[in-house]
Design a protein around this nucleic acid. Structure first.
Length: 438
RNA sequence: GCCCUGGUAGUGUAGUGGCCCAUCAUGUGGCCCUGUCGAGGCUGCGACUCGGGUUCAAAUCCCGGCCGGGGCGCCA
């Protein structure tokens, strides 16, 4: 007999024979009668054991360790006493694999485990429904994004993750031994996206890992994260990028909400679909808002973590949205971003922007400098060795259209959507400064 | 990298110099219980992160290592 899922069994007729399989979540043993609670991906079903009818096999069954994998063949009986509306009267119970005791982490224990313990035993942690739901939602979020790019006629690309040079100097790169030479893990597909603009692809996007060897230890950083990038050509200004980003967010969130009604309800999360156009506040205006709120700086005013949070609250209060763009980043603030296009009427400002979501940076992007001489000049300004980037620079010599794009932290988007307390909750097997396993 | 904070049974905790051969919960073993679903009752089991030091005496104080958690810088 073929094993079916609990939710499928619920559809069968009364007295139908079926075979279910799953993890033994718990046993309620009342002496003469016992209940096995068995969990599969679709739910938890109950098997009823009667001592009178089963004799020796009763004792055997109630002694199986929790989290063992069982296959149960039995008769379906309808009842209003279980969540799925049925229970199983067993004909045979097969222990596929017995779980060792004690469990390093209880799946349904009444005490919570710490994050470290949970991530050391992530496979057990992920047996919990509320943890698994996050990744079901993540799947639909990705679908929503891909769906958007398909509708907008983008080409999905895959750029190398083993690279010879980084996008923004060498400080945050992981070293890799590459045959006889030294290489790095890509921190961003930035330069490759631009090369494809030179190649005439016009619209590209990539969803792929990015690596940052930063010594950060925060709830919103990991050493390996999934970066969503897009790049488009023949733009008139960074507003074209801002618009595309706004449509993308709206589409992806709507798609997720439409397809994850059940999951979101179970997690108790409501997701805002922001109205177009999103609120835009120039960097300088952000600073004056902050000044009004009593912020003071010793030197040049900058927007740090605290400032971001306050701005997020301000926009929430004033405009009833969790999304807003910070536009016109000063050239000085974007110093390392040598490829950022500057404002023609005021070179102290760039066309770069961030999208903030619930007081946290989610997207960075803008229009790129597409003119070879300007690009070289801007690189030299920040002391970059143009020779190292010659391969990249060459792509600007033979016809490069105006272009721009963004990078979005996918894990961070999911974290903020679901109000997860730590970005690691949005990643199956997170990598940080301490964690390389599992 | 800097700052704060922590490490006690499988899990989560109480304990800040002697009252501790260490508290409670959860788990786990045994016994009782025929409708449980945070089941219940009785009973047993199980731990002070590592190294060095101070002291008559250290889970507790000091130094160092290792490992968590958080904040900042930075960033997606």
């Amino acid at each position: 007999m073929k094993r079916i899922q609990a939710i499928e069994a619920a559809e069968l007729e009364e007295d139908a024979k079926c075979k279910l399989g799953g993890w033994l979540q718990e046993i309620k043993n009342l002496g003469g009668i016992a209940f096995l609670k068995i969990r599969d991906r679709t739910g938890v079903f109950q098997v009823v054991l009667s001592k009178e009818e089963m004799e020796d096999s009763f004792d055997e069954a109630v002694n199986i360790s929790r989290e063992s994998v069982l296959l149960v063949e039995g008769k379906k009986k309808d009842t209003d006493q279980t969540e799925l509306g049925f229970e199983l009267h067993p004909i045979s119970i097969k222990v596929e694999t017995e779980a060792e005791k004690p469990l390093p982490l209880g799946v349904v224990d009444k005490v919570d485990a710490e994050m470290g313990t949970r991530f050391d035993n992530r496979f057990l942690d992920l047996r919990k429904k509320e943890k698994r739901l996050i990744f079901e939602i993540r799947k639909h979020l990705l679908d929503g994004l891909r769906d958007f790019f398909t509708k907008e006629d983008f080409v999905e690309i895959n750029t190398p993750k083993i690279v010879a040079a980084g996008a923004e100097g060498g400080a945050t790169l992981f070293n890799v031994e590459y045959y006889d030479s030294e290489a790095y893990l890509a921190q961003s597909p930035q330069l490759y996206k631009q090369m494809l603009m030179a190649a005439g692809f016009e619209r590209v996007f990539e969803i792929a890992p990015a690596y940052r060897a930063e010594d950060f230890d925060t709830i919103r950083h990991t050493s390996e994260f999934i970066s969503l990038d897009f790049e488009i050509s023949f733009i008139e200004s960074s507003n074209d990028i801002i618009d595309m980003t706004s449509y993308m967010i709206r589409h992806a969130l709507s798609h997720t909400v439409d397809n994850c009604e059940k999951q979101l309800e179970e997690l108790g999360v409501e997701i805002e679909i922001p109205e177009y156009p999103f609120k835009k506040i120039p960097y300088r205006e952000c600073i004056s808002i902050l000044k009004d709120k009593g912020f003071k700086w010793d030197e040049e005013p900058t927007i740090g973590t605290e400032e971001e949070k306050i701005l997020g609250e301000h926009v929430r209060d004033e405009y009833e949205t969790d999304f807003f763009f910070i536009t016109e980043f000063p050239t000085k603030v974007k110093e390392g971003t040598f490829y950022a296009m500057r404002k023609e009427y005021d070179p102290s400002l760039t066309t770069y922007f961030d999208l903030e979501y619930k007081g946290q940076e989610l997207v960075s992007g803008g229009q790129r400098e597409h003119r070879y001489e300007m690009l070289v000049k801007q690189m030299e300004e920040v002391g970059l060795d143009t020779e190292v980037f010659q391969t990249y620079l060459d792509t600007f010599k033979y016809g490069m259209p105006t272009h721009g794009g963004i990078g979005l932290g996918l894990d961070r988007l999911l974290q903020q959507m679901l109000d997860l307390p730590n970005i690691r909750e949005a990643i199956l097997f997170p990598r940080d400064t301490q964690r390389l396993e599992p």
